[in-house]
Design a protein around this nucleic acid. Structure first.
Lengths: 208, 208, 208, 208
DNA sequence: CATGAATGAGAATTCATTCAT
DNA sequence: GATGAATGAATTCTCATTCAT
């Protein structure tokens, strides 16, 4: 009646279910999403969800897993060792924002839903930590300033935070990708000049 | 008669209840917090909660309200019109981080719990938007570069995102306040130099 | 509407609930009894059951606990140290059968339902073991035959089995209490004469 | 094609399925056994079970049927009309215990699982009644005492109960077959002497 | 003959919320 | 003013059973 709900091969059903789950989780968060609503969205019966994924937690984990893979795949495109530091950073940032732009649900589930869900926030924290470390390495290699004076790790934390905030805007759809990329690239590199040399870089002007 | 059933003045009770609620909400999030656990923490009966606050939603709203006020009060200290732009920014940032450091639960409830809670995420979004606007104004006034070329609003978004990320670290307790302040101040001002002039500021060095 | 379902003190409700639970468990067994049916029988809502007993398992455990106590109390009447061995045995057996007669549901729940229920069969097994040991001691003291030749423990097992079988009949209501008591008393004592002296006691007659 | 999908003749399949079913039912009881687990144990698909047996109830009935037949066959060996009463009883008891010893699952399913299963306890009750009647006849013929004074039927109930209790011990594997046989034989015949002559047979000794 | 795919119906458990005292 | 008692309405999860291939 609903149409097309007939005897699909396992692999297809799996994706169908994950699609539905990601959509609903992204929309309502983990706790406010019922297995019933996921089943309804996927146009299948609830037992199927349990048959394929065992429990709500495991279903959510599978969502995270899949979206996380998608994300990593997208990112890996940017990691071209042939590129110079600066170009590499730009490419990665652009791919990141493009991914968020084209996969709003993934972004929401991974970084806005999972993070606030008991048992899963650690996943995000860990993933974020790995990314932060990579950023820290990247900016460290791109800097001549005496390394001891700079807290590269915390700087990376700030840059990643900035990136996520901009990504949220992107995912809300009202920001131009190119502009956002330029902005983040700018902050990233300029953020390095003089880091650790407290306040020696003057703002362009002082009024008031 | 039964013991422990003190008749407290309304104002005191209210705070007692909000204290408990904030603590538990901060710990477990909105959906994973039961009215029972709040009542238990506050050492009062559940009907009291309903008598004073009507519903779980309203109780949570009251928490947000109170913590938000605390936050705003703390922030307002930094807004000294007598200060120069640069000093003002530094003061605000410092007060912000100090607040997060001293009020971890407030920070968590306001920015990590409410944001992921249906019906309340808008509150955060709105509040964040106000702050972002203020930052945008601040940096705009601190910049001489041709304003049309710069997306001050998006820049502010990024800076606020960086601030929140650093705040999370502060709230986890493993970061020095002064260092973090310097870092954010640095990013803020340096982030402005050359914004809008795509990539004309070279990183300190190019290797690879 | 159902009548009398109003605001009872905890202790009363507890008994009311256990009464219903024992009745329904005795009737249908553990697995075939739903919490719904117990709640219906007790004329209360399901959450009450959980509020008072936490889970189906715990509710069942509470039933076992209460019925077991009843049973033990009834039995203890028979243990009058002033009585001679023979009289004591008779008294105990009589009290046992009287208990079964007057508390059919207790008997069923304790010895016919719990025994077949995962997680609870051990309770019965243990209890039965204790009783068997007591019987073993009793018959041992009542026997002059060379103790080494007799497996008092296994004999006790057999006697207890006989007792339970007769109890089942009693609980079905078609057997006279006095007759049953005489029968068990008879088997108990006569079962001792010559135990261990293989077959030296001839049956009264041989035909065929 | 997929492998392991052998076309077996119906009779073989049937046994394979019953074997699995009996094993799992014996282990977990009726309600705690899922059709899935039986199918898994039998290494066939669930629809096969339904194809051959129609429903869980019918499958269980088939188990009971088969095990019951096995049991009856084993028992019939003992019924040698050529034997004298005493020898016949001993043979039957021995065959019974031997059967339990060698077919623990049968014993468990027939007398410990079915008995506690809605819709099937009657089967056990009926079977047990038949056996009890046979025992009643046997002991009646072996007794000279005035028949009117003795409740042979109830005596048989007790003896059967004793037998089942000892059988349980046997099935737990910690009892010697010969010893157990002697014990039951002894109780059976001695239990008769003086049955109906209330308490005129003194225990061997009186202390206390 | 055999099975992977699918589900209707129910069972346990939880929780926000409300009265009667 | 304060609370112990009570529940309606979900929610997660399971299982016997049935098709379409």
């Amino acid at each position: 009646m609903a149409g097309g709900t007939k005897r699909l091969p396992r692999a297809v059903r799996e994706q169908q279910m994950l699609d539905a789950a990601v959509t609903v989780f992204a929309e309502n968060g983990f706790r406010d999403t019922s297995m019933d609503s996921i089943a309804a969205k996927a146009e299948i019966s609830k037992p199927m969800l349990y048959l394929y994924y065992g429990s709500k937690d495991e279903l959510f984990a599978a969502c995270i897993e899949r979206e996380s893979s998608k994300f990593m795949d997208a990112m890996s495109i940017g990691f071209n060792p042939a590129l110079r530091q600066r170009d590499q950073a730009r490419t990665v940032i652009k791919e990141f924002l493009r991914f968020v732009d084209e996969n709003q649900e993934s972004w929401r589930v991974l970084y806005r839903v999972a993070v606030g869900t008991t048992n899963f926030s650690d996943l995000v924290t860990t993933s974020r930590k790995r990314i932060t470390e990579m950023v820290a390495v990247l900016i460290k290699r791109g800097t001549t300033v005496d390394a001891d004076d700079i807290d590269f790790e915390l700087t990376a934390v700030a840059l990643v935070g900035a990136g996520e905030a901009v990504a949220d805007r992107i995912s809300e759809g009202d920001v131009d990708l190119e502009t956002a990329t330029d902005l983040l690239v700018g902050i990233t590199w300029r953020g390095l000049k003089g880091v650790g040399t407290h306040g020696n870089v003057e703002p362009a002007a002082e009024n008031t």
